[in-house]
Write a protein that binds this DNA or RNA. Structure first.
Lengths: 269, 269
DNA sequence: ACAAAAGTGTTATCCTTACACCCATGT
DNA sequence: ACATGGGTGTAAGGATAACACTTTTGT
């Protein structure tokens, strides 16, 4: 069964962290429903996912939370994400709801049997019940992001997708499904505008696609295809990148780009 | 607010229908979570959706239900669908979870203020709470299907998608989202095997695609494309279809078809 | 001058599209 | 025989994939 609350308690007591957030009356939340966010960022080299860590137990999890009774589910996801990243209105879409009975038992907590103090009782009763969880996929510019741990964790950091640790519960499955979604719907998601910095080279843009699709693409064909779509604005050259021809910098024509994404920007092959 | 229970009560009392199902102890269900199924069938002419009707109020709704505490969400959807159609293991996939606060207020019930009898109290308390609902899309062979009304409704019938009545709550939105999903992911869904009868003509198969994509396709090109994929088995000709050349009948090579669907059968343009 | 990587060009091949043509069938 | 719709063919245009060529940079 769920031993999250036990670790919470131990953690809080050990670290004397403010824990008022955890004393929130859970009756203001929809019972049995949570939200987990797969937040993806790109550092021009690798795709990264935002994870929370309970250091004491070397336990990693996705940022998530609950839905207030007077709050739409999408609003809740936006709120939760803003709390963890400081970013308002990023690309954020629900991609799947996870409802297996045993979804919390894939990865067990390093359980310590301890009874909890009285002030937590309501929260415990709330957390102990079966939960289904809606997964939300978000694409954010890693450079605009201020990762902030929540009341339950002491780290909030970017981890490369190919170096993911074992995650809490079924969070590994949730990430996997999110990545599949990203791959198969890349043409219909604003991956460029959401994940790239203001200005970038064509190489960097191509690397983004290669990391998402998990295969290498032909340099010349990628360049020609993207340029022909006419959503890129060419700027001055970027000098001193090495002993070779300097690449141009590009930015997005946002109107044109968003139009195209609606219809699907072709780069699945 | 939700007045479903009131209508239920009136309906049951009026019709003296068996209502033991409604006295089920709702504490065996996950609270606040429901399932709604968009079941699609094809009669070789039109796409149809399976709907339930409360005749007395001329009120239509999607088949749906709740999730038992010891049941995976996908299992629940399968069970619910089997109860309404008699079909086991059809194509059935969750496509979106609807979680707006006001999702039940789009279409109001024709509300009658009435107090309910004691035996229903628990069910009422259960139903009155806010619900989120997971939408499942199912593709079934309309000829293998035995539509069966549930305890709350007195009709369960196929309605053509282009003649849908106003639906309960946000069920209209749910259908819309399902149809969008069907259209945009047609290449990755086994629409052929799931929706066509054992044997069919190329014209009928093309009509299926035209109804899903909502546009007409070139006859010759459709035929060549599908034949080149080599998942169709050609049989004897179908005679006496009219004063013209008799069309061949086809069936699916199921292994080959399912392989291709995994990778995506191309017919989005 | 040279290596390295960027930008562009070339070619063969395939796919798509729009139509045309001939064929089989029941009246 | 003939109208009707089925099966197949064709040709233009576009997209894709693989690779070659040229240009620009810092050392």
């Amino acid at each position: 069964m769920c031993k999250l609350h036990i670790n919470l308690y131990l953690y809080i007591m050990d670290n004397k962290k403010q824990y008022t957030e955890l004393l929130v009356d859970p009756s203001s939340f929809l019972p049995g429903v949570s939200i987990d966010c797969v937040v993806i960022g790109f550092d021009l080299t690798e795709l990264n996912i935002l994870l929370l860590q309970l250091k004491k137990h070397d336990l990693w999890m996705l940022p998530g939370g609950f839905i207030h009774l007077n709050e739409d589910m999408d609003q809740a996801a936006t709120r939760i994400l803003e709390e963890r990243t400081g970013i308002k209105l990023p690309y954020l879409k629900q991609f799947h709801t996870f409802g297996d009975v045993n979804r919390r038992e894939n990865t067990k907590f390093p359980g310590v049997n301890h009874m909890l103090g009285e002030p937590f009782e309501k929260m415990i009763a709330f957390l102990e019940k079966r939960f289904i969880s809606s997964g939300y996929l978000s694409l954010v510019d890693i450079r605009n992001c201020a990762p902030t741990p929540d009341a339950m964790s002491d780290e909030c950091t970017w981890i490369p997708v190919n170096l993911l640790p074992v995650l809490l519960y079924d969070h590994g499955d949730i990430v996997k499904k999110a990545m599949e979604q990203l791959r198969s719907r890349i043409n219909y998601m604003p991956v460029g505008i959401s994940l790239m910095p203001e200005k970038f080279t064509m190489k960097e843009f191509q690397t983004l696609y290669e990391k998402i699709l998990n295969k290498s693409l032909d340099r010349g064909n990628f360049q020609k295809k993207m340029l022909k779509l006419e959503f890129l604005v060419r700027h001055e050259k970027k000098l001193s990148g090495g002993a070779h021809k300097a690449p141009y910098l590009y930015s997005f024509n946002k109107n044109r780009y968003n139009e195209l994404v609606e219809k699907g920007i072709g780069y699945i092959n």
